[in-house]
Design a protein around this nucleic acid. Sequence first.
DNA 1: GAGTTGCATGGGC
DNA 2: TGCCCATGCAACT
Length: 905
Amino acid sequence: MTSTSGAASSSKICFNSDCKDLKSERARKGWRLRTGELAELCDRCASAFEEGRFCDTFHLNASGWRSCESCGKRVHCGCIVSVYAFTLLDAGGIECIACARKNVVLGSNSSWPPSLLFHPPLSERLKDYSAKGWSQLAGSGPVPWRQAPSLFNSPISQPEWHSKVCYEVDLSTGIDRLNADRLSTPSLEKKKIEDFSERLMNGTLKLGTRDIHENGNAGINCEEQPGSCLTKSQQPSLKEEPSNPPLGLSVPYTSPDEANGQIGVSGPHLRPNPPPPLAKQFHSNLHNGLDSSGETQIRNGRPRPDGRGRNQLFPRYWPRFTDQDLQQISGEYPLILWGILDNWECSNSVITPLFEKMLSASDAGRIGRLVLPKKCAEAYFPPISQPEGLPLKVQDSKGKEWIFQFRFWPNNNSRMYVLEGVTPCIQNMQLQAGDVVTFSRLEPGGKLVMGCRKASTASASEQDNEAKNNSSASPSFSSINQAELADPTSWSKVDKSGYIAKEALGTKLAVSRKRKNSTLGSKSKRLRIDNEDLIELKLTWEEAQGLLRPPPNHVPSVVVIEGFEFEEYEDAPILGKPTIFATDNSGEKIQWAQCEDCFKWRRLPSSALLPSKWTCASNSWDPERSFCSVAQELTAEQLDDLLPHCNPAASKKMKAAKQEPENVDALEGLDTLANLAILGEGEALPASSQATTKHPRHRPGCSCIVCIQPPSGKGPKHKQTCTCNVCQTVKRRFRTLMLRREKKQSQKEAETTRKKQQPSLPDKLLDDDPLPSTNAGNSSPNPKKLVSEGSDDDPNRIKSSTSPFKGQIDLNIQPEREEELSPGSDSGSMMRLLQDATERYLRQQRMLSSGVNSDSTVTQAQSGGGTEGEKTSSSVNLGASHQDADRDHSAVFSIKSSAPTSATG
DNA sequence: GAGTTGCATGGGC
DNA sequence: TGCCCATGCAACT
């Protein structure tokens, strides 16, 4: 290549001096120049470059063509473009990348491609090599793998450190691509990766790590630095390489010998003549979701040695190792790298990400069984033919060795693979449901390495602490990720997904959603259920946005982005009181706000900015209605019209809940409540953990693994006598459920009796009695409807009269008021609601009763005693009120509602 | 009775 | 529709 002079981007002419075509408007990037810039190419040249046929196209007649010492294939060695396509041999001559890779693999006695992990960063490095020379990167003397990542600290490659990189293989083109979808890097960096990955379409840009490590003083002139060259294969060479099996056919080989007792995964890989696996092949093995070979996956759990790698792994199991991860692994395993491997070949050590799995509740539970994805198990673990399986040595991120039983259960006509005995390891790593365990292989030796990533919902403070701790170890690094780089011990502490920056921006909710989407993908509907719960339990971002108000007296600057105007405020917004905006009869824009004390809705000008807590007394816009005693001007119908629009999600769910059997709803609430109670216990449950913890078919008294599992997946099992928050909450919730059932039963009975005795009375009563509305005594909205529907177990209707934001988090809630929610304490408005409802119901009962025993009923009920029937009466109200809270409010409200139950029960 | 084991079940993809 | 796999749960220890 001769185009090494001139500006890379200033000219409108293609940078390729052999071309001189005009660049397109969006010039495509080519190789990195010595200046650090990227050559800008026309489409044709860029395509040629990306497809690895640049030299074939433009340098066909140029000097520098040499033949591969192994396969004889001609490789251009005379330009910067082809610098990655070959490697220089110590004894002279060159090898094409394919042969070099093969030899490296054979030499290291590894069935794994030696350089998979370096792919992204090395790509970047390679870009840099052309500009910076080798000495900068390789240092002097042998560079062990574990030091290799430090080579990546170029300004360019650094950002990619924070990205999660995985690969997929486009078999149609034989292209390894960085799966940019899953990169969390900023778009520009992401684009950069994409660009380069495209540039490497055929390249696969594999490194013989030996080449890197053992050559410390390579310059850019690879000819002069035998053994130092990184090579980029050209597509033809790859395709033509006869020793390279077709993509997707190479499998991580494991020994069929499973009778040799304890083995590491290494054992199986020490086959005498492993096929020369290309990294590309490995990728296709690892992520062969695109495998189009037509080979069917081995079914019925009967893996064949020749087919194990063809299992199509679901993306959710693709390892998302970051470079930091790798470095940390390497950093964590000096013993592995320097001791266990016991020779200088350690410089060839490669940690190959195999797969990862988010721990389910079962996995992290006490049973100690980690369910392995079948395809992963069959692809990466030794084949087992007996259900008993075999012991498997695994080293954790601290280098500690564990022995798990790798086995399977027949399941239908298939198998279910599990690792047994993982509890100590899980606990040692302090993992819980939602965290991710990663499996990787250390080559040579094939040691199985188990890493982990904590769910990202660890508290920000925790992360801050991590950052601080780590930064202390490496003051030059400021970010968490960077800090982690310097401190491998934090490997399991902080997620390295690159979302941290986003976490810093927002709430757990956003993060959890992001994480769920990214980590679990479309994993489970349970997740979506949880998301729905989140929607109902918490504000959506959109809704939250609606509550954010500009700081007083702040004028926004308006920014137009893609045609949309955005208001920008220099100061953080404040959280305003939720209100309902509307237009009155005169067309004036107004808003309705609800008093914190009396729950009456007050009309306010639309411009009114309310504090999070607002009462009638603050109604300076309408002094006449600045007292709670003043009636509400909003009619029931009007309010009814307004409210449904406030939260479509909640309304939708409300409707759905109506249609569901009562107990189902209640039991779902039980789940939610239990989870929330766990949250309230102070152990912030990772969102992903919530996702994996929630499970169907809960029943009262359920002793399943989820229900009995303590929040962290460890600790004693809950007993009947357990008084922990979870148990108490579940018990309360159960009582509520029972009360509700009693109530329903009694209502039916009462209804029957009423019809018999006073057929015309109920309607009148319903009309007259606003029931548990908070607006007793004034224009309570649509009392009839509320009563009728409320009595039909639809507390949401009732709730709708109190807040348009039912089913959402009360952003005004003060966490420090948590104790108020405990049983027996004043639970605030809900308590009032309850009392109000009780009194009202008793009055109703008095009216209904023909007087035979009503007095005693009331008396006894009010005194807390009474006959069974009287208890029922009381229970009816309690149950109804409980439903209000149980169904449609967040944990806080749920617990609130539970409190009276305990108190009165 | 508690813990363990191994298979069954069923939701989700 | 079939498979995967999280979880349930009965049998067993």
